[in-house]
Design a protein around this nucleic acid. Structure first.
Lengths: 267, 267
DNA sequence: CCACATCGTTGATCTGGATCAATGCATTGA
DNA sequence: TCAATGCATTGATCCAGATCAACGATGTGG
């Protein structure tokens, strides 16, 4: 999973432009990159988010060499499905994905949303098959990092190994954070926390932290937060009535972010 | 955390005797070990649980060499506190520990219980300080594994690196499992799941899977499951009334484990 | 342009678990 | 031995959010 504050790691490019433009549904050219040519870790705007380590140029190249970049995913396309053999972890380059698993009763449970610069697929490692499925919520570009290769490289580059341990540890800490939220917080606190989480993650990518488009439906939000659609909708309405946010469909503006923080932490 | 199915990893010894004896509160001599002398990974009954990998003897010795074993912890003693600099991960040799963090509102949230053969302290890595505190619920013996040393060793022994990645991945998968449970399940399902989890983890250690002593209080169970003490108590009562379990204080007997499984999965 | 499907909102009612309150039952320690 | 203290059980009441139901908005494809 990855919740209030998301995992941040390997990835490569795109997506660092004013909010209005980011509503676009297609993968755009990395106009802002030094060379508007080939995508690589070396020239990726997200690399500071994605790689919280200081690698030397040759090491970056070695990492870059093992990363595979396919064609963009269409909305609804799967990256992997639960049960498939585990082979790679993934970094989001643009777009948004969700991970979810199916409970014994057949119910879907959303376990995380992944924004550009974030890593997913980490849960597959322990059983050598993915525990959840990952699907694109909108057109998305991702970097595939074959795990075996990453493992080998990690053994050679200590700081990479350490970084990867940190990435996994962060996922654990985030899950525990979310856990705490689901078991103790009210509907308003949960929704506030999610909005703030998206806000923070946008800020990291130099996007507006107060005005953005939610990449997921109300139903998906509810599922993720352990609430029904109706409750989510009502909370949105209440937040609007009290002028804490403005929202029209999936577009949201945080009018009083600090008030929202107050709500999130039980004010 | 570590929930329905717990993280299982490095550790070293003790605790593999009939249930009655396991009620004891003190660290016993490893009578059952080949040599009843020094504790080491090589002669530890838990090693198969704790190290899900096939290491060669010399590698086991190298791992064993970096592991530190101090005096047993008394009930209530802390292993580490939230915020302390991260230095080591730990394996449980005997006894039980709980991990918990304190929310913004000051509320305690139990994030996991750790039984012999299980690893904890993984959440500290990403921020280089522990995100939660760990405390002994009863007299307990643990193995301290300095992370820096483990890291170095991992780079030299590929299967160790892989194992450690797996351990972390398992923690992630378990958290997501728990997450699912907390956001979708009823009180009865949660309590049933916890009982079954303890049962399974006991079975792994060759202890009775149907009759055991819970190492934690009702309050702690409730906190962990996102319920109040009263609700936990009522669920226990209902389970007893329907002859699914028998319980007197912390001693529990699963009379109809399959019925319990049915309940846990929403029957 | 309209038909159909999906998504979101709003209202009315119901309920599982929280909360408040009281009592029982062990363990500790002077 | 008898407080005192902490843990567990049980009952009565309350409420946040689920559930059921109806309807409005969006958008997608023919």
């Amino acid at each position: 999973m990855s919740s209030t504050s998301a995992v941040q790691t390997f990835a490569d490019d795109i997506d660092a432009r004013p909010i209005a433009a980011s509503y676009s549904d297609s993968v755009e050219q990395p106009l802002h990159c030094q060379q508007a040519g080939k995508v690589s870790c070396g020239n990726c705007r997200l690399s500071k988010i994605c790689l919280p380590l200081e690698l030397q140029a040759p090491d970056i190249d070695r990492l870059n060499a093992i990363i595979q970049r396919g064609r963009p995913l269409q909305k609804g396309e799967f990256v992997y499905r639960a049960g498939q053999p585990f082979a790679s972890v993934y970094a989001v380059r643009s777009g948004t994905l969700k991970a979810f698993s199916i409970g014994e009763n057949g119910e879907e449970q959303v376990t995380g949303f992944y924004l550009p610069g974030e890593i997913f697929g980490l849960d597959g490692l322990c059983k050598s098959s993915y525990a959840s499925s990952a699907v694109a919520l909108e057109t998305a570009a991702i970097c595939e990092i074959p795990f075996e290769r990453l493992s080998e490289l990690s053994a050679l580059i200590p700081s990479l190994q350490r970084t990867f341990f940190q990435v996994m540890s962060k996922e654990i800490a985030d899950d525990q954070q979310l856990l705490m939220m689901l078991s103790k917080n009210t509907a308003e606190q949960r929704v506030a926390a999610l909005l703030l989480s998206i806000s923070t993650r946008n800020a990291r990518r130099r996007l507006s932290s107060t005005s953005f488009r939610l990449p997921m439906s109300r139903t998906e939000i509810g599922n993720y937060l352990g609430l029904t659609v109706e409750t989510v909708s009502r909370v949105f309405s209440r937040f609007q009535k009290s002028k804490v946010i403005a929202a029209e469909q999936r577009n949201v503006e945080l009018l009083q972010p600090d008030r929202l923080r107050q709500v999130a932490s039980g004010g």
